[in-house]
Design a protein around this nucleic acid. Structure first.
Length: 214
DNA sequence: TAGGCCATCTGGTCCT
DNA sequence: AGGACCAGATGGCCTA
């Protein structure tokens, strides 16, 4: 999956103490390259008190240790987010999901998978694309979005129902799964828009997966 | 240049 | 007491 992402490179989380303070690493974050200094080089002057009074050595040592722990804690958090990104549907463009987008997409992705199972129950059968031996089989985890528009833009809940940023993944002649960048709210299955009709006994149906709040 | 995103520092609070 | 967690502040990098 990391290969699938290609561009998802984890920041260097190896022990920062291993690096000289002046050294920096260029890492790929999002779709840009970013300099990351090690061991708080650019912040080291903040260890002075606001009044300019020299702080007791013990206090400085405590604070330094706490900073290290906090830094490592955030690195672990970021590593966990990378793992989460790796199992979410890949983005089509060369951009990594931000933290908030990752969490929102994960939330909505779980919701979509839950809906898939619920619909399978409802229709009494598993959709074609979930049958491993069906020609239309498509592991949900490998569904990729061809276009999501701006990851941070907030599209209108009511408008844009046939958004040009829609991503349609054809799985069979009659079944489409749409992991779409589209705003959802409590009416995300809006029948008036014809996205999904619960009473319909037949496919097609669509899933809209968004990184925005629902 | 403004705004978004991020890493880091920092001090406070809670928990063990 | 010390560690984990949290939120605010700060400054760097990038994009529109």
């Amino acid at each position: 999956l990391l290969f699938c992402f290609g561009r998802v490179l984890t920041p260097d989380v190896s022990s920062p103490e291993d690096k000289p303070e002046d050294e920096f690493t260029v890492v790929n974050i999002s779709n840009y390259r970013k300099k990351v200094t090690h061991h708080g080089e650019k912040y080291k002057n903040r260890m002075k008190s606001k009044t300019g009074i020299k702080l007791p050595r013990q206090r400085v040592n405590r604070r330094t240790k706490a900073n290290d722990r906090e830094r490592h804690r955030m690195h672990r958090l970021n590593s966990a987010l990378d793992v989460l990104r790796s199992i979410l549907p890949a983005l089509p463009d060369d951009a990594q999901l931000t933290k908030i987008e990752t969490l929102r997409l994960a939330h909505n992705y779980i919701w979509a998978l839950t809906e898939t199972l619920r619909m399978a129950d409802h229709f009494g059968e598993i959709p074609d694309y979930l049958h491993p031996h069906h020609e239309a089989y498509l592991p949900v985890s490998q569904v990729c979005m061809e276009h999501m528009g701006s990851p941070t833009s907030m599209s209108s809940p009511e408008g844009d129902s046939t958004s040009t940023s829609s991503t349609w993944h054809r799985n069979s002649a009659d079944t489409w799964v749409d992991f779409n960048h589209r705003e959802h709210n409590k009416q995300y299955w809006d029948e008036s828009n014809g996205f999904y009709k619960e009473e319909s006994s037949a496919l097609p149906f669509s899933f809209y997966l968004t990184i925005n709040d629902r």
